[in-house]
Design a binder for these strands. Structure first.
Lengths: 183, 183
DNA sequence: GTCTATACTAGGATAGAC
DNA sequence: GTCTATCCTAGTATAGAC
């Protein structure tokens, strides 16, 4: 098994169970590799696993969210497409999020910078689209923040109530939230 | 130390570290009680601790959020007061939330029902105020859900970016979010 | 690169004295 | 009701063979 195939597997584990909820034994079972093989690929253990997952996520966010938003296109249309990808990525809200799983607890402290980085990059890209659509900079940033708040909050509330329709509604309204300020 | 004084201490621990992030040793240190004393108060161990914290939170939500919203008063005014209490309760977003901490990971499964219950009670109370203000039932429910989504998402994003102004803005806009649908 | 075996630590929980 | 001492399991990590 190539290391590059390991990372998406680890991503699923971390976003489902959070950092402290994932044990090497879990990873071993999920990947089919023995503990020693895992330490061969990740000599610094679980912390390194999380860090490499975050690098992977950062580049995925760039590829699937940031770059398409920066491409040519109608603002509303680009946001609608982003919403589509968000829905898929989070499996309609069932999947949970790294922002959540990797910021809770003191064991998660080493990841805070990386999490903040990709989140900020995403917010910036949305804000740029809002500016493109005619909003002033300050308002654009606020709306972009609100979009991420809606996504993250939608994941938390949908999971807590086990009602994934809620997440679908949130995602569907994302373009309007950014461009009109409506939910 | 009375049991009733232990619960708020436990609440702080769980919302800061999440369920799996809290160890009995942590609890012992934070409360000053030895492990055996803790098991005297909570014979079923950590799981019981979390459950009693959730009971405590449920009654706190009733007392501080649900009842005031059900009392006589202007809808906008009642929501503004709720926002005030939310800001205090979460210490301007610094404190983290049980909905988060007690729904991540499989070890948290026993708490899902309790979490869903108090969250739902809170949403219902907000929706009732929205109906009072003239919104139809379906829209009122959606706006109330959006309010909780904004609170939870605000906590997650503010913590991740370590920018607590974001949470303050979210909270300040809560009444408008519910009654006008604006952020 | 993967395995088995093993060391070591931390976490959850209990027994029994005071 | 609290303590010390102890048990057991699960978790992290490493050694060394193949």
């Amino acid at each position: 098994m190539e290391k590059v195939e390991l990372i998406p597997e680890l991503l699923e584990l971390f976003r489902e169970h959070g950092y402290e909820g994932v044990s090497i034994a879990h990873v071993s079972k999920a990947t089919g590799l023995g503990k020693s093989s895992l330490y061969h690929h990740f000599p610094e253990g679980k912390e390194q696993m999380a860090k490499e997952v975050l690098e992977y996520i950062h580049s995925a966010v760039d590829q699937y969210f940031v770059l398409p938003l920066k491409a040519e296109g109608e603002p509303l249309e680009k946001l609608a497409q982003m919403a589509q990808v968000v829905e898929t990525f989070y499996d309609c809200g069932r999947k949970g999020c790294l922002v959540d799983g990797l910021t809770i607890g003191e064991a998660s402290e080493p990841f805070q910078n990386q999490v903040a980085q990709f989140l900020d990059a995403w917010i910036d890209a949305i804000a740029a689209v809002a500016v493109e659509a005619g909003l002033n900079k300050k308002l654009a940033r606020e709306r972009a923040e609100s979009a991420l708040i809606a996504i993250q909050g939608g994941l938390v509330v949908a999971r807590a109530l086990r009602n994934y329709q809620i997440f679908k509604r949130v995602v569907k309204n994302l373009p309007r939230l950014v461009l009109e300020g409506r939910y």
